[in-house]
Design a protein around this nucleic acid. Structure first.
Lengths: 151, 151
DNA sequence: TTAGTTGCAAAGCTTTTGCACCTCG
DNA sequence: CGAGGTGCAAAAGCTTTGCAACTAA
């Protein structure tokens, strides 16, 4: 935890930015909720517990900054709000999402299934892949089980 | 063209909705710009040429309706606006996007590269895939060519 | 000093909603 | 009549921005 914060601090400082108390609190919230995909509002409410004086604009600015630095990834699931995801150590986003259209749940697949495709893009389309995003919409195993119970 | 409009008309009528002149004009714009990913505002401006009296709210309501009926797909590329894509005959969205982070262009890959993955999801995760979305962010061949020229 | 940062409020944007009016079987 | 549809304007949300004040090298 502390090591990861130090690293982010260094990344910021290398570009002339500071890890202010507000920013540190924001990063800690992201670290503590790494499994979730928090919206700016979510982050704001959680940060307020640590730093009650913080403003929503600061949270937005911090998330935007972290996003530019590729510390977090800005995600969009089409529900009208941006969500933010801490990037893994590899600095690449190697997971995919299973979004259930019935219950709205979202599961993750933490493997990266796209490496062969990225190689093909490089060769066939001369496209250099920096990142990707793969979401599946469908029916999750829990909802399928429910349907089987009822049917 | 007329055949596809008739089909959409029937789909609407089967659910008790009407293909009003405004809706038809909207659908025609979508058909005429099938290659693009128009925003609601884009559609609005194009529809205004055919039906100047139309309101933006009607366009939004039409796109929402067509989206619910799976005639169009609502897309989100993270640029703050929803975009709308007419669905193909197969009623499945079998293409992927190459989004260039330098020039903002978006190319499409019209093949579906994910069928093996969808089979794996079905087996390993018991997840029924209804649709998917795959976007790659990176540098397109045009920008790469420019860089090579300059360097 | 100087560049970066912050909280607040206001503004900006896209999208949705309320409502009176209209259409058509 | 009654359900569906429309245009307009207002409202609703999320996000960004202007600004004066603050911080730390």
């Amino acid at each position: 935890m502390e090591a990861r914060i130090d690293k982010i601090k260094q990344q910021l400082q290398s570009k002339g930015y500071k890890l202010t108390p507000q920013r540190e609190a924001t990063v800690r919230v992201l670290l503590e909720n790494e499994e979730d995909h928090l919206s700016a509002e979510d982050v704001f409410m959680l940060v307020k517990e640590k730093a009650p004086e913080i403003g929503l604009a600061t949270v937005y600015r911090t998330l935007e900054l972290l996003s530019e630095m590729h510390v977090v990834e800005k995600l969009n699931f089409g529900d009208g709000v941006s969500r933010y995801d801490l990037r893994g150590e590899s600095n690449k986003h190697h997971h995919h999402h299973l979004i259930c259209v019935q219950c709205g749940s979202m599961d993750e697949i933490r493997e990266d299934w796209l490496l062969p495709l990225e190689e093909r893009l490089e060769k066939e389309y001369r496209f250099t892949v920096l990142d990707h995003r793969l979401d599946f919409q469908g029916i999750c195993h829990r909802c399928r089980a429910k349907e089987e119970d009822n049917g």
